[in-house]
């Protein structure tokens, strides 16, 4: 039986629950807890870097992301991604994108689970490459990211969010590759 702290479904439920609580029970959550470079770097409201993934613009945004994290968590379970990679890729990508985007364009508001979700998808694309070859899964997910901007006729906010999703996807791939190389391999049959 899996130990509870390695159970990614628990983490997915917690993420969804916190997102729902933020949306429904905290009034003005978007202005209080979303991220922007101005608020983080100039107003020194540091909590925003932790709270922004759980904040959503509207009910559609919230439901879309909760559904996505549900599906992605099942996929992550199937490929045995592990809680460390699941949470690590989610938060690392969200953090890095927010910090860099906030420094480059301080005015834009960043909120939502989707960057972290795309990072998990990126990690799954590497871990699951035994089942779906990399040369199929990576272009497939990359294409999915670009459909929205095309359909929206390249509306600025949609292009921006797609760019963040794409970067999240790439950061997820980078995260799992880095972790794999950093963790020393346990050699038993041919010890070094």
């Amino acid at each position: 039986m899996r130990k509870w702290f390695n159970n990614i479904f628990i983490y997915a439920c917690v993420i969804a629950l916190v997102s729902c609580i933020s949306f429904f029970l905290i009034s003005g959550s978007l202005s209080l807890m979303a991220f922007s470079g101005e608020m983080f770097y100039y107003s020194l409201e540091f909590w925003r870097i932790i709270t922004f993934p759980f904040i959503h613009v509207d009910i559609g945004h919230l439901l879309q992301n909760i559904a996505a994290i549900g599906v992605i968590t099942f996929l992550a379970y199937e490929v045995n991604l592990g809680a460390a990679i699941y949470l690590g890729s989610f938060f690392t990508a969200s953090l890095l994108i927010a910090l860099v985007a906030g420094a480059v364009v301080p005015a834009i508001i960043i909120a939502g689970l989707s960057m972290g979700i795309y990072a998990i998808i990126g990690a799954i694309s590497i871990k699951g490459s035994n089942f779906i070859p990399k040369k199929i899964i990576i272009p497939l997910f990359a294409a999915a990211v670009f459909i929205e901007p095309v359909v929206s006729m390249f509306e600025a906010s949609v292009v921006r969010s797609s760019a963040f999703h794409m970067i999240g996807f790439i950061l997820g791939i980078a995260f799992i590759i880095t972790v794999k190389q950093a963790v020393p391999k346990r050699r038993v049959l041919a010890p070094a």
Partner: peptide, 18 residues
Amino acid sequence: IKFFKEKTKASAKDMAEE
């Protein structure tokens, strides 16, 4: 082999992957 397995806390998956 048993010594190295216990020392490295390797699992069956680790050995199969090796």
